[in-house]
Amino acid sequence: MPMDFAFLDQLWLARMPLLRGLGLTVAISALAIAAGTFAGVFVGLALTYGPRPLRWLARGYTDFVRGTPVLVLVLASFYVLSTVGLQLNAFQAGVLALTVFCSSHVGEIVRGALQAIPAGQSEAAKAIGLTFGQTFVYVLVPQAIRQILPTWVNTAAEMVKASTLLSIIGVGELLLATQEVISRTFMSLPFYFFAGALYFAVNYGIERFGRYVDRKTTVPG
């Protein structure tokens, strides 16, 4: 079918912009997931062990962010922050918005996992003289990770999908790159399918990573 060859021709011609788009999507997602997870652990700690004012602050933060559409967060960090003097380019603003979104979700996941660990674990750790920091690192985190993992994989996949929203503020990630190719070639269906397959591949990778960590942290018995 000549149609297919035409698509492959166009795909070959568009390979560099699409590859750049994919690279940007992966970079945005990876940055947001890494920074969001890092920040989310602290949000979760504040939610679980923080003194009352800090706990309320963290609670307000997570409820507010989780109740806000990601698109609104993206637009706000791009357009609103500049009015208060924080000048971010589209990429930075987008990553910031996704990081904030991710941190609130991870914070909630971490809180749930920490609260699910029996109190006896912390007491036993205290009883042998471990400090809170040591208890957290050697006793609580290893047990929380297995609890966190499945939901964290979901959140990470959500972040990859949410990265498409950055196309609105002109970040040339995979979706915007695809749309630009389509506007040149008018082959919307095959290129959207192609982009969809790439998103799937990225998320499949995340899921495999989750399974790998799950296998590594399985406790016999």
């Binding site: 029996p118 006896g120 674990q121 007491e123 036993a124 750790a125 205290k126 009883a127 042998i128 003289g129 471990l130 400090t131 809170f132 006793v139 290893p142 047990q143 942290t217 406790v219 018995g221």
Partner: peptide
């Protein structure tokens, strides 16, 4: 201070009704 309390806790050892071994 918490670090001082942690140090003092090491003066005693405790065994619990529910064992509380670290499962991992």
């Amino acid at each position: 201070k918490e670090t001082e309390i942690a140090r003092q806790r090491a003066l005693t050892g405790m065994a619990f009704q529910q064992f509380n071994l670290f499962p991992h």
